[in-house]
Amino acid sequence: MSAVAARATRRTIVTSVCAREWRETLGNKLLVGMTLFPPIVILAAGILAVYAAALYPPSEKDVQALYASAPAAAGLDPREAVQGFIATYFLVLFMLIPTVVPLTIAIYSVIGEKSARTLEPLLATPVGVGELLLAKSIASTIPAVIVTWIAYAIYLASVLALGSPAAVHAVTAPRWILAVIVMVPLLTALSVNLGILISTRVNDIRVAQQIGGLVVVPVVALGIAQVTGRVVINNESFIRTAIVLVVVDTVVFVAARLAFQRENILSRWR
């Protein structure tokens, strides 16, 4: 008779939890739909907007409005400027995907388990709460990052095929590519950990989504400010933003870890 069962390695825990969560997610058509709908809409709208701007030249009024709101576009050919502006604007919207998509998955991952009453057997295993949250966090982060990267790749290919040189220049700017590679995982992790943190305090998926949805506000504000030239993100501010996101991600994860207590979950979550 074994005295104490062997302890699973952290890698085993993460891979097991991820594999199970992904299978459960893929089996939940509503969740898959809610996850894929925002990127599909943003992607389709972006491609159509760039294509429409290529087909229909902007009016003089539109061009003047653009020059007024985006001083960086001044001096460019009007059609080029409009396409470049639209292409860049949708890149900002792409930054919303990592904040919206994983939030739903993360909230379902905790509140869904709670309502299905699967958390108690899970918490009765020797797995630590920190390990469990890390595994859940990774399980929600990876699909969102992959979905965003795929959507960006399709958008990039579409703009290369349909867009003007200004539009191509906008979407292939090293800063944007770096933003997609670096900022997308950081924003995703922020959204996921925030979702988990909210889920420890809220019992209703809809309420959790509404609270978690606030995470898009600073992203939208920053993106619009960047596109319209109100804020110029140079290399230095880019690195600073990335560092701040790493710190905020860590703080939110630790807060989620502290809020996610075995005893509270079992005795208060009913």
């Binding site: 699973a8 097991s16 295993t125």
Partner: peptide, 12 residues
């Protein structure tokens, strides 16, 4: 698969 998942968490 339910049992496999828990078996893995118990180090099997």
């Amino acid at each position: 698969d339910n049992l496999r998942f828990f078996a893995a968490l118990y180090g099997l």
